[in-house]
């Protein structure tokens, strides 16, 4: 057990996977010599050589497209898209190729790749350094979509993603890279190294995909959250005093519907929170599933607290970001309904 930031945990997962299997190769823009603009691959090139960890041209479709070819050969590429906001040039390769290869070839070819990408806002990133495009991937059959919220999960989920035989979209909330963030931007950052969730287990134990984590048990309502919103949810619960159950989904696809349903059937109320824009966001799918599965247990309509249906702004960061105040209002409303 070592105390680590999420960045160090991600780096550690790469290191463990690369040491265990020489088929694991790591590349992306600035990933090699420099170690990544967020340091997530620092030291890997020096340790494993340039043929295992290297810099790529600035071409997202090329990065994903070559990884698909490498996977068809038999390697396990773990590639980085510098920001999730820049994944769109690779969307054709991800949707039309990576996601479908196993299905369309009836298993003749497979695509065991991991596409890592820093995601989310709360960092004054503006339009193209803050987006949360998870719904563009959960909508695509054949993809798995994962988002950790702490260093231990980041390491375990990344190891599980690398071990997975199919393509995984691994979204890293960059706001959580150095420490937890509950939306109170006026408070100083606390490093993961001073936080219990910064204790990352040694070794190669994976956190299974498709298993949610109940972060706080409660009886009155269920909050479904992932990424940075897990801490926003915890703060809103503390500030409202509502005895809410906070579930960190961790893996959006496959989804741990069993844990969600058990919780909502227990509490009878559900609030969904995500940073991404509202319309056709992943929250809509969660809402539908809860409604379908828990209809007779619901005491109140399900509510979504999300980013607004606008591009992510710069100066209006905290009006946009769904913080604890906005979530707290929703919690109170659901309890009154």
């Amino acid at each position: 057990m070592a105390s680590m930031t999420m960045i160090e945990a991600i780096r550690e997962a790469h290191d463990v996977a690369m040491a265990a299997d020489d088929k694991v190769v790591v590349y992306g823009e600035d990933v090699g010599f420099f170690g990544g603009v967020f340091r997530c691959t620092a030291g890997l090139q020096e340790k494993y050589g340039k043929s295992r960890c290297f810099d790529a041209p600035i071409n997202e479709s090329g990065i994903v497209g070559t990884a698909i070819g490498m996977a068809a050969y038999g390697l396990k590429p773990v590639i980085e898209i510098q920001f999730a906001d820049y994944v769109y040039p690779a969307y054709d390769q991800i949707v039309s190729e990576a996601a479908r290869l196993r299905h369309r070839s009836n298993g003749d070819f497979t695509c065991p790749i991991v596409i890592r990408m820093p995601t989310g806002g709360g960092i004054f990133g503006g339009q193209t350094h803050s987006q949360s495009p998870e719904a563009l991937f959960t909508h695509v059959s054949g993809l798995k979509v994962v988002m950790p919220s702490n260093p231990a999960d980041a390491k375990g989920l990344l190891l599980a993603s690398i071990a997975d035989p199919d393509p995984v979209i691994f979204l890293e909330p960059k706001r959580l890279y150095n420490g937890p963030f509950d939306g109170h931007h006026d408070k100083p950052l606390v490093s993961w190294k001073k936080h219990p969730l910064g204790d990352v287990p040694d070794g190669s134990d994976a956190v299974p995909l498709g298993k949610a984590k109940i972060r706080r048990e409660g009886a009155d309502l269920t909050i479904l959250a992932y990424g940075t919103m897990v801490y926003v949810a915890e703060a809103a619960v503390a500030e409202t005093g509502i005895d809410a159950e906070v579930i960190d989904l961790r893996s959006l696809m496959p989804l741990d519907l069993e844990t969600i349903v058990a919780s909502v059937q227990k509490t009878g109320r559900c609030v969904i929170v995500h940073e991404a824009t509202r319309t056709c966001g992943f929250g809509a799918e969660l809402m539908s599933l809860v409604q379908e599965s828990c209809f007779y247990h619901l005491e109140a309509p399900i509510i979504r607290v999300t980013g607004w249906d606008t591009p992510y702004p710069h100066a209006q960061e905290w009006e946009y970001f769904p913080g604890p105040a906005r979530l707290g209002e929703a919690l109170n409303k659901v309890m009154e309904d």
Binding site: G62, G65, I68, G69, A72, G74, L75, P77, S96
Partner: peptide, 18 residues
């Protein structure tokens, strides 16, 4: 989807070299 396999072939070749 047209053209997608062109870059995949390069990746396969890179894998052979790796």
């Amino acid at each position: 989807n047209l053209g997608t396999q062109f870059v995949q072939s390069v990746g396969w070749a890179m894998a052979s070299a790796i």
